[in-house]
Amino acid sequence: MPELLQFLFSGVTVGAVYALVALGFTIIYNASDVVNFAQGEFVMLGGMITVAAYAAGVPLPLAAVIAIVATAAIGVAMNKLAIEPARGAPVVSLIIITIGASIFIRGGTQLLLGKQIHTFPAFSGDAPIRIMGATILPQSLWVIGGAVVVFIGLWLFFTRTLTGRAVLATSNNRLAAQLVGINTRFVMTLSFALSAGIGALAGVLVTPITLTSYDVGLALALKGFAAAMLGGMGNPKGALVGGLLLGLLESMTAGYLSSQYKDAAAFVVILLVLFFMPQGLFGRKSTERV
């Protein structure tokens, strides 16, 4: 039993990160129909910029804020320079553009901050907390708590604020949103900023556990993408459930089957879900109009 609990803890921790990455995908997908393969780089940037600022003597909390703001700015720049000019391009082109952006960001980070693996101190120490025979790191609680705060915050934002509703309206019907006077360009900018900021936050929270380096983004992007698909593309609830499921699945596979194939489990499940429920768990079914 403690064993299962242990796997549960690690699964939820990793799952929370995947959920945040998937949420980032979802926000941008809803605003622009673009699947942003550079999403994982935002997580990487969050960790790496914090590392750099902390190494330069900035206190950790401030370093984290700097990282999140800087990453959000990079997200906005990416939207303005690479996504907006390519509006209406076919899916293949958009995939290549965002992968190009991801390679560019990775290359730039490697150039400026080096190839080494980095970390910074955990926020509340490294002493594991014992719960019913299993242990959990205080930093894991930070990760899980961070994810909870982000999801609740976003839910409030989308349902309670005018700006949030404008974003929702745009994702439902861009043209109609424009007609009622919503500035859809601003909505896209906001979405990229939010999405990049959330990614960076995930990076800040998880780095003390998983460590970081310039090349961690791709794997995270793929997992986050898979989680978003699993939950149903474009649905924040799906992102949360998909992320957590994926995290749990990985840790259970690693624990009970094979740690080598823990990543495989994720993709096997994705393939199965796509075969049997092509719209994901919470996705909308669309009818082609002819």
């Binding site: 992968i99 190009g100 390679i103 290359g107």
Partner: peptide, 15 residues
């Protein structure tokens, strides 16, 4: 700069 140039080329050509 190889990676950065590659990424840049991918984006510029597609745009």
């Amino acid at each position: 700069y190889e990676q950065m140039v590659l990424g840049l080329v991918m984006m510029l050509v597609m745009i």
